[in-house]
Computed example of a mutant assay.
Amino acid sequence: MTTLRAVGDRAVIVDCADLEAVLALHAALAASPPDGVIDLVPAARTVLVTFDPSILAGDRVAGWIRSTPPVRPGALGDAGDALVLDVEYSGEDLGEVASLLSLTEREVVDLHTASVWRVAFVGFAPGFGYLVTDSTRLAVPRRSSPRTSVPAGAVGLAGEYTGVYPRSSPGGWQLIGRTDAPLWNADASPPALLTPGRVVCFREAS
């Protein structure tokens, strides 16, 4: 069973057993938020629920969370209305990733583009999404020595996740490619292109 903890008088954090439980709870809460709920913020093992206490009391928020049955997100086999990101697969770590997985570079690219991904949560930097897929075949460790600067648009792998750097920053993910997609625009609504729950497909740029 999940554990709820108050975070001041404007938020509740829900501790979940694993990422699958996070995805299930976030999907259920996002489907029917009551008036007064401001935001739902999933992470690797938690969901933060922020609310306006002048509209919705904390005990009612807790009751809503406890009474909402989790909704298991559907299998990711169908791309449907997925966001498509074009990627040039020439990342500095593509060869290393292929070696770690006992695959050719071509097979790594084919696996990455054939997979359908979902944004599990966001963090690290504005616009940076942690994407997961149903397959574990592309799971690789982070680099033993992080880079001091990773260029904006770099597509990487780390653990069970794939991600795209929205701006230049330090980072330790295994870089396999690059996209020109604008991942963060402070003037847009929402400002992040990758938001929790969004389905994403990667396409090899011609």
Rank of each mutant, 00 (worst) to 15 (best):
L19K: 11
I55P: 01
A75P: 10
V49S: 11
D81V: 00
A98K: 02
R66G: 00
R72E: 11
A62D: 04
C16Q: 13
V14T: 11
A17Q: 15
G95I: 02
S99M: 08
A30M: 06
V84K: 05
A62K: 10
P53N: 13
E88K: 13
D86L: 15
A79V: 06
E96N: 05
D81E: 05
V14M: 06
W64H: 03
I65E: 10
D78G: 02
T46S: 09
L100I: 04
P33L: 08
G80V: 00
G74L: 12
L23G: 04
E92T: 09
P42K: 00
V71F: 00
I38D: 05
A30I: 09
A62R: 12
A43P: 06
A24W: 05
Y89M: 01
S32K: 14
Y89F: 13
G95K: 06
A31F: 03
G36H: 12
A75Y: 03
A31R: 07
P34G: 07
A21S: 12
S90C: 11
D93F: 03
W64Y: 10
A17P: 06
A44I: 13
V37C: 11
D81K: 04
I38R: 11
A82S: 13
L100H: 09
A30T: 13
G77L: 08
L40D: 02
L85S: 10
D18H: 14
R45N: 03
P42W: 02
E92C: 07
Y89R: 01
R66Q: 12
L94R: 00
A31H: 09
A44P: 01
A98G: 01
V49G: 06
L48S: 11
G58W: 11
A57F: 10
D78Y: 00
L40K: 03
S32C: 12
P53A: 08
P42V: 04
P34K: 13
P33D: 05
A98H: 00
A28Q: 11
P53K: 14
R72S: 11
L83A: 09
A43L: 07
D15E: 15
G63A: 15
S90E: 12
A79W: 00
V87G: 04
C16D: 06
L40Q: 04
V87Q: 07
D18P: 13
V97I: 01
A79F: 00
V41R: 07
I38Q: 06
G58L: 14
S54Q: 12
V61F: 06
A44L: 13
V37R: 11
W64D: 08
C16W: 08
L85F: 11
V97W: 02
Y89C: 00
P69V: 03
G91A: 03
S67F: 08
F51H: 10
G74A: 15
V14W: 04
T50Y: 04
P73G: 09
D52P: 08
L56E: 12
